[in-house]
């Protein structure tokens, strides 16, 4: 394969093929099966709009998850007229990210993304920083204030 850069950005086709299934699963957990269909298309259209500006191919997975998480948050703020209330996910097994996505529903979007990506998907702060277009410190801070907020709410 031709490589101009050690981590060059792949053709969109390959980015899409590699991540579409897990992004669809992620969206299904966040907004339910029905709404996930629209969210899926919107996620990858947004990715396409930003794709030409990517400078390297690192953290593409985190980037995709972040876009999807934002799309889901937008959907929740402006639900579709025909009943945009998310269905309860039908999944019986509840992996860490699924629990977190549920528990963090009320957090501000950035903190929520940081918490879910860090503790649910086990991404590094460097990855999260790239995904959130911020510094590593800011990512760490967003995750820790998200966690603090969750603790306060439980107290």
């Amino acid at each position: 394969m031709m490589m101009l850069h050690p981590v060059s950005v792949p053709a969109f086709e390959h980015f899409y093929e590699e991540h579409r299934d897990e992004i669809f699963a992620h969206l299904t957990r966040l907004v339910g099966r029905q709404a996930a269909e629209d969210a899926f298309q919107e996620t990858f259209l947004r990715a396409l709009r930003g794709y030409a500006r990517l400078e390297h191919g690192r953290h593409l997975r985190a980037w995709a998850f972040t876009i999807a998480t934002r799309v889901a948050a937008d959907l929740r703020r402006h639900p579709a007229a025909d009943g945009g209330v998310p269905e309860q996910p039908a999944s019986d097994s509840r992996p860490a990210y699924a629990e977190l996505e549920h528990l963090t529903l009320e957090l501000p979007p950035k903190e929520r993304a940081a918490v879910v990506l860090r503790y649910g998907y086990d991404l590094t702060y460097a990855d999260i920083a790239t995904a959130l277009e911020s510094s590593e410190d800011a990512a760490r801070q967003a995750a820790s204030s998200g966690v603090r907020r969750l603790r306060e709410r439980r107290a």
């Binding site: 579409r20 299934d21 899926f40 298309q41 990858f44 259209l45 396409l48």
Partner: peptide, 26 residues
């Protein structure tokens, strides 16, 4: 994550058509 369910073919093709229709492709 190999456990993720696959994207339904219909949805996959719908996205591909939309990407073309929105003139987002090189």
């Amino acid at each position: 994550m190999s456990l993720a369910p696959s994207v339904p073919t219909e949805l996959d093709e719908r996205f591909r058509r939309a990407a073309g229709a929105e003139h987002l492709l090189d």
